[in-house]
Design a protein around this nucleic acid. Structure first.
Lengths: 224, 224, 224, 224
DNA sequence: GATGAATGAGGATTCATTCAT
DNA sequence: AATGAATGAATCCTCATTCAT
């Protein structure tokens, strides 16, 4: 049985770790806003400090460079997106439907929050693929299963990813920068489905699937 | 009839403009070499000055920031690319072939020179469309003609551009960053053709067209 | 009788001189606006060039330094002010009235045009006395005559000038910067008259003299 | 009762603030010496850094421009002047004597040190009134009391301030720039007193009051 | 005489990083 | 762990001046 002293010690350590975690999250969230505001290259470490209201030294207690914190922000983002996409994918079996749903959710989430959207637009060409390993695994699996069961006819999985991601980045960009029709993302995703070998009619049908919180279904939050 | 004075004046101005143009070009060309050498982020304005052999003030007479001169380099690049694509397009009548050739040439030229490639990858999401008006006009015309003569079935021209450009950017990126097969760009472009409604076999056939100086045909210069 | 040739030559020279004079005036007038806008120290030569629309070299054909053109502007100003004050003084014999009228006109002209006003406020402490010799001569003469005929009792002419000029500068400043009553300058000048030995009632009477275009009589042009 | 942690924290913050204050004062004092040495316009930021022995970045942590630090120096000066004037005023009850003493001390201190003098001459038209709130309060109170007890007959308090400050600025300027008699400031202040309604003889009597360290009593430091 | 392109010394400014508290 | 003052190398930028046309 642990002594009283060691229990107190444990709680203190616990609290310390907890505080540290929170400080870290505050820095990440501030950095998120800063990157959204100024792009991925312009920000200087001072911007993160000012936005977070924390001290200069605190930043260096958690991150060493701008690149470091950008990575943390991107990671945070990828997890958020995963968390929103997975429940939607759960009931879907057809690889075509799963990929379509993933892309629509992805685009939808980006369009729903300008900050998040611009970070993604700027990050996709930098990262050059799905934002984290979990996403990458899911994408590859779905594509492979579609190929295996004859739903897709494609010559290269990397090329498929390039096409899908490139499309997504440009569509998000268009939604953020221009006036586009409400079903713009569905049109673009349907086109992409055809490049996998799905015929036009079927592609349109799939891309019309009902989804929570899509750009096409609800007017996006337009915060600057 | 212009007076002697005004003629002299005109010549002086002309000469001035000519000198200015040349200086500007020299700066742009030096900047291109610098970007090639150090990447897109590292260079400082001093690098452009040293490389060009011109004066510090001269740089500021022509550009205000690093971003500024990068944009000028990209613009110059767009014109070069146009100049390379147009002769290739000349003999082609079929809109599908024309679009395919444009994309292949574009990707090919980008892949052929790492500097050029990274500049393009970086500029595409910034510009959000064809890199200059001439390119944009050509692209739109070909798509429209394809739609009119029944070659393409698409629901949105902007979505088509987003798909094509996004694909191009990511493919260039993959060629520059990863090991990809020699015919990678042809595979990706063929996929894109299918999203326009071209059937798979035909798409592959078109994408296999012979072209001068393509990534598939000549190994790219791999300077870092 | 001059030959035709020499007459043409004469006209040309005449025209040349005329053009030069006009260019010079244009530079001075541009500088006037610039000094008013940015103060006496901030402007750089480029500001004069941009404001005038003339060429860099042209500036150097007429002036060598910023100090040079400031002097020219001040001179121009002094002449303008003289030209407005002298006709007003002409009918006045009493030195008290003459000095009062001079100060009121001076303040009035400064208040009437913000540009002119701020230049004067900024110049008075720099010049430290009447703006040019003609003004200085007039002021001294009037003070001396007032002393000689017993109208003024003062112990020092320089101190009198310091008091008058200092008052004028601060009053102009107040009119330009704060809300002051319409007869503010008349109140201040009346106070100044008392320091010369004029009794209060008389001072107020004199300071109430009718004058053309005074801040107290007509609402000033408030151009920025 | 504050926890040990918060007490430690408080001390740390306290110490930080203390250090910051000291650094700031060191910069201001170095700047004063630099202004004394080179005049008000010539110094460049590097001069302040070298003179203070602090780092370049430290300057920018406290001030943004040369004008900024000049203002800080002037402010410091205003406090010093207050501190010198107040003990002199203490025994004086008569508002006329108090105002007279204030002006004489003010002019005297300015004349006593060229740097201080030129800074004041330059700041007065910029600030347009007493240099800080304490001075302003004192001046207004004395004027009001003089009006209330019938010692002064004036029509406007702001005009009185304009007259007094304008006079002081120009008198300081004259003392610094020209050869003037030893009792110059007393003559000018006596004139000013008359404009408040004090009769000539009384004005001269008051202005002759004995004062410590006046221009008339000690020859000023004439460093350029 | 007017023009405006180029020049480069001189000075201003930033910002990643350290470190005592 | 958090803080924030100080640091100074690296970099940016201005602007008076020249000079060929």
């Amino acid at each position: 049985m642990p002594s009283k002293k060691s229990r107190v010690r444990a709680r203190n350590v616990q609290t310390g770790i907890e505080i540290r975690r929170r400080t870290r999250l505050e820095l990440i969230s501030a950095a998120f806003r800063v990157f959204a505001d100024k792009g991925l290259e312009a920000p200087v470490i001072d911007d993160f400090i000012v936005e977070s209201g924390l001290a200069r030294g605190t930043f260096y207690n958690h991150f060493r460079t701008r690149e470091d914190i950008l990575k943390a922000v991107a990671d945070e983002l990828a997890w958020e997106i995963n968390d929103r996409i997975l429940p939607v994918l759960k009931p879907l079996k057809d690889p075509a439907e799963r990929i379509c749903a993933s892309l629509l959710c992805f685009i939808g989430m980006a369009a729903e929050d300008r900050t998040r959207g611009w970070i993604l637009v700027r990050m996709i060409p930098v990262v050059g693929g799905p934002l984290n390993d979990r996403m990458r695994r899911h994408a590859r699996n779905d594509i492979k299963r579609g190929v295996d069961n004859g739903r897709f006819q494609i010559d290269s999985i990397p090329a498929t990813l390039d096409l899908g991601l490139g499309m997504a980045a440009m569509v998000i960009r268009s939604i953020l920068a221009k006036r586009v029709p409400a079903d713009y993302s569905r049109i673009a995703v349907a086109m992409f489905m055809r490049s996998l070998g799905i015929d036009a009619k079927e592609a349109r049908r799939i891309a019309a699937m009902p989804l929570p919180l899509l750009h096409s279904d609800a007017s996006p939050t337009h915060r600057k």
